[in-house]
Simulated scan of single mutants.
Amino acid sequence: MIGPVNVTELSASAFKQFLDSFDHVFSDCDGVIWTNNTLPGSGEFFEKIKQHGKSVHYVSNNSLRTQENYEGKFKAAGIENGFEKLTIPSTAIAEYLKSIKFSKKVYCVACPQTIKILEANGFECVEGPESVKGYEDYLKSLDGDPDVGAVVFDSDFRINLIKLSTAIIHLRRPDVIFLNGASDRYLPVKPGHLALGTGPFNDIVIEESKREPIQLGKPGKIFGEFAMKRAGFTDPSRILFIGDMIEQDVVLGKNCGFKTLLVLTSNTEEDMMASNIKPDYYAETLGSLVPLL
């Protein structure tokens, strides 16, 4: 296949070949199913795709939402049991730490929900400080805790200089594990509009600590494999990943061997064509595919 294929321009026979090329769907949520509100036709798309015998699960980098918030979002889109079929970084991070029988403290530069999930799984989390009074106070605060055995980054929108510096200090010890959840440089606000995310701060810590994190969010291969295991999928070539971001969603698909479909809610067709990394398929929105199903 040469270049991304616009699914809405496929002939009936070619569209059938497209449907026959996968058995399972992984879909991102923010920017694909909803922005502030449900995107038209997204829930109907999943209903119809399931009528074609496809199983559907959801994969998001957004650990910020509570379970109640996610359930409300899925319900508004007309999607049943969406939260039960959702994989997010906070879950992956907790399961990873359990898998290695981790027992030390976790220094968290993370959103409250990620910390809540880690604590619910029995891990002792430390964080902050949230602020310092000035230069001298900053210098006095730069102490590492020898009981910290892991540093976790995941969507801390209260991030500051002292948190970055504390994380780097801990990561200078080679025995401290470095785990990264969401690494999004940009976040979808509404169709066609992006806001800066927390990803650039992750990049600072990676550069200054000279450590590569275990990537337990998109586009990390380990995260994709974790999502597959949770969903019970075994053959990546039979999975279609639907997303709106090239760096997170399309790259995850490439890393894991999924087929990829980009919806143009956060990128233009020109953005997509100019990128070095391109999806296999694209469409304006999920709703634009509903008439074909």
Results as ranks from 00 to 15, higher is better:
Met1Arg: 15
Ile2Asp: 15
Ile2Arg: 15
Val5Ser: 06
Asn6Arg: 15
Val7Pro: 01
Ser11Tyr: 13
Ser13Thr: 15
Phe22Leu: 06
Val25Asp: 04
Ser27Met: 05
Asp30Ser: 08
Thr38Asn: 10
Pro40Ile: 05
Lys48Pro: 00
Ile49Val: 15
Gln51Asp: 07
His52Gly: 12
Gly53Cys: 09
Val59Gly: 03
Glu71Trp: 00
Ala76Ile: 05
Asn81His: 12
Gly82Val: 07
Leu86Val: 01
Thr91His: 10
Ala92His: 03
Ile93Ala: 01
Glu95Phe: 05
Val106Gln: 10
Val106Ser: 11
Pro112Phe: 02
Ile115Pro: 00
Glu119Gln: 14
Ala120Cys: 12
Cys125Trp: 03
Gly128Lys: 15
Pro129Gln: 14
Glu130Asp: 13
Lys133Thr: 12
Asp137Thr: 12
Tyr138Gly: 06
Asp143Pro: 00
Val148Asp: 08
Gly149Ser: 07
Gly149Leu: 04
Ser165Pro: 00
Ile169Asn: 15
Ala182Trp: 00
Ala182Val: 02
Gly192Lys: 03
His193Met: 13
Leu194His: 08
Glu207Tyr: 13
Glu207Val: 05
Lys210Phe: 02
Lys210Pro: 01
Glu212Gln: 14
Gln215Ala: 06
Gly217Phe: 03
Glu225Lys: 15
Lys229Glu: 14
Arg238Pro: 06
Ile246Lys: 12
Glu247Leu: 07
Glu247Asp: 15
Gly257His: 07
Thr265Gly: 06
Asn267Glu: 04
Thr268Pro: 08
Asp271Ala: 10
Pro279Asn: 14
